[in-house]
């Protein structure tokens, strides 16, 4: 990604990422949130994976699954904590600026920052985080407005779109056989446990598969 000016790279990453805020907005409304709640999620949660997880669990279980929805989105947010550790030492910010930097710490801003060198790292972080935030929230609103005017979400295949969104989110992370195995087993456990436990719990059981595989000895570890 070193090719291209940092401003151009940030803008294109921000716009491309923001664009799928449309699908988030439409799916969030289909899952039972109103337009305001949908926009608040994009403004304050601001982490695609967690947001999709929240509405995914909520959409299939309703209000009763709210605790599981909160827990799933929280657990999926953990990677941002690791990005934050890296960005913290890279940015060296203090006070209010640090509070804002924390909110902008997501996959994309971290990736662009780490792909640059020297002073462009901080610039890449702020620009990418800012552009993603801007476009993600605008597109969320557009998606929510569209979603609330189309009626039954199933007729438009929005339930399949939600599944495809998770495929697209997980796919780049299946880098080696250990990750692919983790993906396979956790999906399997989530599916077969679904008839027997409350809605949302299968997702948490899937997460537990990840912890179990972590606890196993790993030959490939360096």
């Amino acid at each position: 990604m070193q090719a291209g000016k940092v401003g151009v790279v940030s803008l294109s990453v921000g716009f491309a990422t923001g664009l799928y805020g449309i699908s988030f907005g439409a799916l969030a409304v289909a899952s039972g949130l109103d337009i305001w709640q949908t926009c608040v999620l994009s403004l304050f949660m601001f982490s695609g994976g967690s947001q999709f997880a929240f509405i995914g669990v909520l959409g299939s279980g309703g209000l009763i699954s709210l605790p599981a929805a909160i827990l799933s989105s929280w657990l999926l947010g953990v990677r941002n904590g690791f990005y934050a550790v890296n960005m913290s030492s890279l940015l060296q910010t203090l006070g209010l600026k640090r509070v804002v930097a924390a909110q902008l710490t997501i996959d994309e801003s971290t990736a662009v920052a780490l792909s640059r060198e020297g002073e462009e790292q901080a610039k890449g972080f702020w620009l990418t985080g800012g552009y993603v935030f801007l476009f993600w929230n605008i597109m969320t609103l557009i998606g929510a407005l569209l979603g609330s005017s189309i009626g039954d979400p199933k007729v438009w295949g929005l339930d399949a779109a939600a599944a495809a969104a998770f495929v697209a989110l997980v796919w780049p992370r299946l880098k080696n056989s250990r990750m692919r195995l983790t993906g396979f087993f956790s999906a399997f456990v989530a599916i077969v446990s679904s008839p027997f436990v409350p809605v949302g719990v299968p997702i948490l059981l899937a997460g537990a598969v990840g912890v179990a595989i972590w606890a196993l000895p790993n030959k490939a570890r360096t």
Partner: peptide, 28 residues
């Protein structure tokens, strides 16, 4: 610790793929 975060992320997202694709109203 970073390894745990990566595994849990993949596991949760894959669980969501499975449930969103094959489950509705707690039935496969």
């Amino acid at each position: 610790i970073a390894d745990l975060a990566a595994l849990v992320t993949v596991a949760l997202l894959s669980g969501l793929v499975g449930v969103q694709t094959l489950v509705s109203d707690s039935r496969v």
